[in-house]
Amino acid sequence: MIDSSWLTEFPDMSRRELLAIRQSLDSAYRTFSRDYGESIENFFDPLLYFLVWFENLLIETPWWLVLAAIVGLVYAATRSWKLCSGVLAAFLAIGYFGMWEDTMRTLSIITVCTILSICIGIPIGILMARSDRAKSIITPMLDIMQTMPAFVYLIPVVMLLGIGRIPGVIAVVIYAIPPVIRLTNLGIRLVNQETLEAATAYGATPTQRLFGVQIPLAMPTIMAGINQTIMMALAMVVVASMIGVKGLGQPVLKSITNQYFTLGLLNGLAIVALAIIFDRVSQSYAKRAQKHLEGTENG
């Protein structure tokens, strides 16, 4: 019986062995979190201060001032009055339905996550574009980051850093950073070979090539990556609220568990509104910044 059981059942590890592995890994992680949790937390302190400061800034500044600043920024980026009035209407509706504070919180955390993703993602993307070895190591990591269910890494992060904004930011960044990395890599790799050769032939240093040719020419692709990153960050808002990140995610979560349809819909719509605003503004900014690429006479 025993010696042939592998035919009908997968010859898996005995429960005892598996248990030993699981227990020892878990307790190792617990020890690690006990020993290093504090210093890791301290490492993130500046980010936390900035997050808290930025959120308070958005919430405590009078709403009309914040609104004016947002519309001003949108206009500066897009030069489109149509878009500005759309943004204004969306935010007025959000405020009118009593979601102003939560929206500001979400806006703050998304902004910070986006900035972080860009600051970390673009250099990694550049590294990937320059070295095939780096690419072969980073690509599977990005695959993991995008497909691993968030809670699998959320709970260890909570053990390490507690609940609140920092683990939230980490979760969002892990989920949202892959597009900007992938598309930075792609954009740089797609830069016209001859243009790059021209720069080299005229004696450009690697740095001059990078900042003078590769990044500017990869910009449309990188912008597409940033756009996707923002969208994915917004999609993570609800998941992040499950580890205590304040904002539009919490009412959504509350309405899911309590079946408050209207509450859920309103807050969901506010998230959608933010997403559309971010999307349109970043796209139209990208288009405006790349105007020279469109041939106007002969193409």
Partner: peptide, 9 residues
């Protein structure tokens, strides 16, 4: 260069 290799930006 054959295809000019100009910087489009």
């Amino acid at each position: 260069f054959q295809h000019f290799g100009l910087m489009p930006h």
